[in-house]
Design a protein around this nucleic acid. Structure first.
Lengths: 194, 194
DNA sequence: TAACGAACTTGTCTTATGTCAAGTAGAAAA
DNA sequence: TTTTCTACTTGACATAAGACAAGTTCGTTA
């Protein structure tokens, strides 16, 4: 239950004095979460927010044909949440499941609201996290328009190589917007190049 | 300078007493913006936020090959902004240009920050707008994964038919993630069906 | 040990979409 | 009026990626 990764994350998103970061960190509770645990379940209101200090999780939903589509991949030092369900208090449209044993710090909706009202830095931190999340989403959306599946794969390999150790390729494929068949061929071609 | 669309929008995003909405609305200033005006310019810090009460605008950026890619289309009763540039005080990566004469209400970064600190409802409104924006972005990203260009076109025709009167098809095509050639064929096939 | 199932690969064929180039139409400029 | 430009369309061909089906590999269960 080393809080350092959480403190570092808080300060990275919104520069603030270490004491403030420690104060905020102390409002989250440590929890070990084994592989295969659902942190968010589709259809239920998401009322806990998880910081994944160590480990890896996958958010997914089903499309009209019932196919499992990975919508987001969380790994070391990221906040995992369905903000839409969390803040609007409506059933989540997606599920979140751990893909490895995880070291997490969590906070309930109530405690988070209290923080919002009592710690201005937390408010700012929350805003920055939403803005950063939106930016990442927009970049990913643009990569769907501007790049090929192969380019998206190469980028993912560079930026988050660790996820390939925990997440099946078929799930990574849907995250990249391609089929598992295509990903398999892309990987074969990559092997041959190197 | 009828503020009603703005007041309606505020209350739609975050239900609040009409007096509160009117108070917030009074912190924005009316401005008529002719077609072809840049509200945000790539490379400059975005320090004004615009509510487009009436009219239509297009956000775009250039990809590596120098192609113009439409990243977002704003029309009646929407807030147009580059939050990433606005809140982080860094140069915008995109430009925003009006595609028709527009009736707008704008607010400066300073006034908005003041509102954040003095009007709790405004703070909540801002948070909700960010969350709604993220949700829309995620849906659009998923539509790039799960749907064909034709399906995305059909959806856009249903939800924002008005933009086809002001925005050239080539710009709409890049927004849909297809080429203008493909959009032209999709539209031809649609004509034949009906 | 054998059987099974999930993850992954590969072959074949199809399809959506892109690329490039030529052509049309209408508005704006000369 | 003629010219020019931009938006848009269309044809011919190329390519990325999907669909489907048949393996292969490997860990788990019986």
């Amino acid at each position: 239950m080393n809080q350092q990764p959480l403190i570092n994350y808080l300060q990275k998103v919104l520069p603030m004095p270490t004491e403030k970061a420690e104060q905020i960190a102390s409002t989250l509770q440590y929890k070990f979460v084994p592989k295969g645990t659902f942190l968010i379940e589709e259809g239920k209101v998401c009322d806990t927010s998880y910081f994944i200090a160590e480990g890896c999780a996958r958010m997914y939903t089903n499309d009209m044909d019932g196919n499992d589509v990975t919508t987001m991949i969380f790994s070391n030092a990221m906040f995992a949440n369905d903000f839409y369900s969390f803040f609007k208090r409506i059933p989540a449209l997606e599920s979140l499941v751990t893909m490895s044993d995880c070291e997490t710090f969590f906070i309930s909706f109530e405690d988070l609201q209290r923080n919002f009202h009592t710690i201005p830095e937390f408010r700012e931190f929350g805003r920055m996290m939403l803005i950063n999340g939106s930016f990442a989403l927009k970049q990913r959306m643009l990569s769907m328009i501007k790049q090929t599946g192969e380019q998206r794969y190469a980028h993912l390999m560079e930026t988050k190589p660790e996820i390939f150790q925990h997440i099946p390729l078929k799930n990574i494929a849907s995250y990249l917007g391609i089929t598992d068949t295509s990903l398999s061929r892309i990987r074969r071609d990559f092997m041959r190049k190197d």
